[in-house]
Amino acid sequence: MDLFDDLPEPTQTPGAQATNEEKEEESLKRKREDDDTNGKEEELKKVCKEGLPVLKGYVAARRGEREEMQDAHVLLPDMNSCLTALPSGVSRVSYFAVFDGHGGARASRFAAENLHHTLSRKFPSGETQNVDKLIKKCLLDTFRQTDEDFLKKASMQKPAWKDGSTATCVLVVDDTVYVANLGDSRAVLCRMEPEASAGGADGRGRSVTLALSKEHNPTIYEERMRIQRAGGTVRDGRVLGVLEVSRSIGDGQYKRCGVISTPDLRRCQLTANDRFIILACDGLFKVFSADEAVKFVLGVLQDGNAESKAGLKEEEGLFEAACQQLASEAVRRGCADNVTVILVSVGF
């Protein structure tokens, strides 16, 4: 039996009613204050976002003289929709990547389809200390996981897949660029050096080409030593006389010979003097130096006579034309390999 069954319902006294009304008024007041605070936070986020660089990606792909297109690419100027939550203080994440396959197109396509999803799952979120360190760890873990996932899938096939792929990924977190790369695809940044004009005002000066990635091939001393320590050999500049790169996704048969999937990581801050980033497979850089590629793009942008593409603003049309012309020029110069170029415009 419940001891309180027979107790009468409590009656509301005038004093109690007044207390309830006060509570309701206090609750409404708190709600208004919360709304004001949220509004101010949203306004602050909006102001922060407006100060971020505007990034737009353009891509050109040429098969060259190859029977199959083994390159793959991804352009995600706004990756926020892929992320469940952003780290505190971060407003926007962008992702651009190029993958150059060898021995087939399956590794490059797998990386293009899966790497950014793995990255999204591992990306830091919420209140975090040292976001920079967490992002670097996230990139390292993502490359390892992508390689493991592809090798597992490749080993289950009959016969087992022997494809491999380079990877050059540019992750832009607000105005900070993180580049993770394997193999010989590359990323370079065009930065304009301001020069003081006669009137003393700063203007755009000469271009400076900044390397954002590091090549990995068996002729580099550290790479060759790692391969030899693992029991592999380097002949004619190739692992076992066959594989041209010393780091890759896939290439299961070479993993025991010291070929690894650990990327090099580089970071830089974007400035108002930055014009664009070029990501490209080695098909471009076989016939262009990095500086030549940057100057070629600048030439198209400064010429301003590019044919306008439907739906694009004038500047967007120029970047689109520069990207297409750079890839076509690589083929014209005699590159028989696949050529993929991603051009990312940077505007403030």
Results as ranks from 00 to 15, higher is better:
Phe99Arg: 00
Asp100Phe: 07
Asp100Tyr: 10
Gly101Pro: 00
Gly101Asn: 05
His102Leu: 08
His102Ala: 09
Ala105Cys: 12
Arg106Phe: 12
Ala107Ser: 10
Ala107Cys: 10
Ser108Ile: 00
Ala112Cys: 13
Ala112Asn: 09
Glu113Arg: 12
Glu113Tyr: 10
Asn114Arg: 15
Asn114Cys: 12
Asn114Leu: 11
His116Ala: 12
His117Gln: 14
His117Arg: 15
Thr118Ser: 14
Thr118Trp: 12
Ser120Asp: 10
Lys122Ser: 07
Lys122Pro: 00
Lys122Asn: 14
Phe123Ile: 11
Phe123Pro: 06
Phe123Val: 10
Glu127Arg: 15
Thr128Val: 15
Gln129Met: 14
Gln129Ala: 14
Asn130Arg: 14
Val131Trp: 11
Asp132Ser: 15
Asp132Thr: 15
Asp132Gly: 14
Lys133Asp: 13
Leu134Pro: 02
Leu134Gln: 13
Ile135His: 07
Ile135Leu: 07
Ile135Asn: 04
Lys137Val: 05
Lys137Ala: 12
Leu140Tyr: 05
Asp141His: 08
Thr142Cys: 07
Thr142Glu: 02
Arg144Leu: 11
Gln145Arg: 10
Gln145Met: 06
Gln145Ile: 06
Thr146Arg: 08
Thr146Pro: 09
Glu148Lys: 09
Asp149Ile: 04
Phe150Glu: 04
Leu151Gln: 11
Leu151Phe: 01
Lys152Leu: 07
Lys152Pro: 05
Lys152Ala: 08
Lys152Thr: 09
Met156Ser: 15
Met156Phe: 05
Lys158Val: 09
Lys158Asn: 11
Ala160Lys: 13
Ala160Ile: 02
Trp161Cys: 10
Gly164Ile: 03
Gly164Pro: 05
Ser165Asp: 05
Ser165Val: 01
Thr166Ile: 09
Ala167Asp: 02
Thr168Cys: 15
Cys169Asp: 06
Val172Phe: 02
Val172Cys: 06
Val172Gln: 03
Asp174Glu: 06
Asp175Tyr: 03
Asp175Ile: 06
Asp175Gln: 09
Asp175Ala: 11
Thr176Tyr: 01
Val177Phe: 05
Val179Trp: 01
Val179Met: 01
Ala180Asn: 04
Ala180Phe: 03
Asn181Asp: 02
Asn181Trp: 01
Leu182Pro: 04
Gly183Glu: 00
Gly183Val: 00
Gly183Met: 01
Gly183Phe: 08
